[in-house]
Design a protein around this nucleic acid. Structure first.
Length: 271
DNA sequence: AAGTGGACCTGCTAGC
DNA sequence: TGCTAGCAGGTCCACT
């Protein structure tokens, strides 16, 4: 599910309410991607700080450390109105003096990890390889061009890898490449400097637009207040295989790259 | 070193 | 109606 716009929308939807609250209890469901790494009971009584985001990770300060959360493919966080009856896919409850924040994640690719800081293990290890934030002023055509130099993977895969720029997952990488007019199969190292300028700008514009629309709700994504996103209604190519390109009318194509679907317009997007 | 494929796990849908 | 194959928003790891 969650790419940067969904994760950031989620963060904004719970950060204010939970900031300054105290942990009253922690409940664990089935195991997630990694073990929590501390005794849940030891969190009780600790004060929660202001939630932050790095890439698609959320960082929730708790006491002298914090929880690094990832929503995986199918995760969502929500304030639970019925904290007494967890469902089959509710795998983490943070019961606080300001409500219960509950992680629901059917596929369990998500994670909740205790760490003494973002720069302490294990959080540091998970965040270490991440690229620039897309809205960091340092992210632009120059950075992109330099980082892509010598890379032979397709540009789509280079964007998804997250070591150059974070936040664009499968939906927004497809959309950004469409906006920039770049064929997703183009070898990354062969994207010219001017096209890198356009691509960096497209990544920012698409993510900003998605953020304004509260992200994409393809299936079940909701923010912590239960609000769905609506970017999917504005997608130019993602999920539109066979339908006419909104610009030129050519049918949108679906191909597979690195075992993931890629959608693009074979006419508007060039190598 | 960079690139590739498999792994993790569950649910939904299209097609027979 | 019921079964099955294929697909889904992510990312880590082992291997070449």
């Amino acid at each position: 599910m969650p790419e940067l716009p969904e994760v950031e929308t989620t963060r904004r939807s719970f950060a204010e309410r939970i900031d300054g609250a105290t942990v009253a209890a922690v409940r664990l469901g089935k195991p997630l991607r990694w073990p929590l790494g501390c005794m849940p009971a030891s969190l009780v009584g600790l004060r929660i700080g202001t939630a932050a985001r790095r890439g698609k990770y959320l960082w929730l300060p708790v006491g002298d450390g914090g929880l690094l959360l990832h929503l995986g493919m199918s995760g969502s966080l929500a304030f639970s109105e019925h904290p007494g009856d967890p469902g089959a896919h509710d795998h983490f409850d943070l019961v606080t003096t300001r409500g219960t924040l509950r992680l629901t994640d059917p596929r369990r690719f998500g994670a909740v990890v205790w760490s003494l800081g973002l720069d302490a293990d294990p959080a540091r290890k998970l965040v270490a390889g991440l690229g620039l934030e897309p809205f960091d002023p340092a992210f632009g055509g120059e950075h992109l061009h330099r980082a892509l130099r010598g890379r032979r993977v397709a540009i789509k895969q280079a964007l998804l890898a997250g070591d150059i720029v974070v936040g664009a997952g499968n939906i927004y990488a497809c959309e950004a490449l469409f906006t920039a007019g770049i064929d997703p199969r183009t070898p990354a190292g062969r994207v010219s400097r001017p096209r890198c300028d356009r691509l960096a700008e497209a990544v920012r514009r698409i993510l900003a637009q998605a953020l304004e629309l509260g992200g994409s709700t393809l299936r079940d994504y909701r923010d912590a207040r239960g609000m769905a996103g609506s970017f999917q209604q504005h997608a130019a190519v993602y999920g539109r295989a066979g339908q006419p390109c909104l610009v030129c009318g050519t049918p949108v194509r679906r191909i597979v790259q690195a075992q993931r679907s890629t959608f693009f317009c074979p006419r508007c997007q060039k190598r």
